[in-house]
């Protein structure tokens, strides 16, 4: 799988929302780093249990978080899964859940490498 790309423009918007508070953004990134793998795990568990409601909520939350941090591919995968839940039982949920798990790992790794201080200076 290709290494995940982080949309720096989305990260810049998040920083503006936080009043250009890099420390706050750093804290939020730490929260994301903790929450994202937990959400991916919850998606896998919901798929194996056939709990489409829990699956939808977990996919919705991870989608929003990923979009804020510029993990667009991960957000799109979650969006697909969430909509599939709306329409009933998703097709190949295990396959999508596995894709989400891998993409989440990749996005997290890519995000951890970004120097947030440089966002503020526009670099």
């Amino acid at each position: 799988m290709n290494a995940a790309e982080i949309d720096r423009e989305a990260l810049g918007r998040l920083l503006r929302i936080l009043g250009d508070d890099v420390a706050e953004l750093e804290d939020l990134r730490n929260d994301y780093m903790e929450d994202a793998p937990a959400l991916a795990r919850r998606i896998s568990e919901a798929v194996s249990q056939g709990d489409w409601s829990a699956l939808k909520i977990a996919a919705h939350t991870l989608k929003s978080n990923a979009r804020d941090f510029g993990a667009s591919r991960l957000a799109d995968l979650c969006n697909t899964l969430e909509h599939a839940c709306d329409e009933g039982r998703p097709e190949d949920p295990q396959g999508i859940a596995e894709c989400i798990r891998r993409e989440e790992e990749a996005a997290r790794e890519a995000l951890s490498k970004i120097c947030l201080d440089r966002l503020q200076s526009g670099a």
């Binding site: 936080l18 508070d21 706050e24 929260d31 978080n65």
Partner: peptide
């Protein structure tokens, strides 16, 4: 979502 809530609060 802890992350979304915190973002919004800030």
């Amino acid at each position: 979502s802890r992350f979304s809530g915190r973002k919004l609060s800030k």
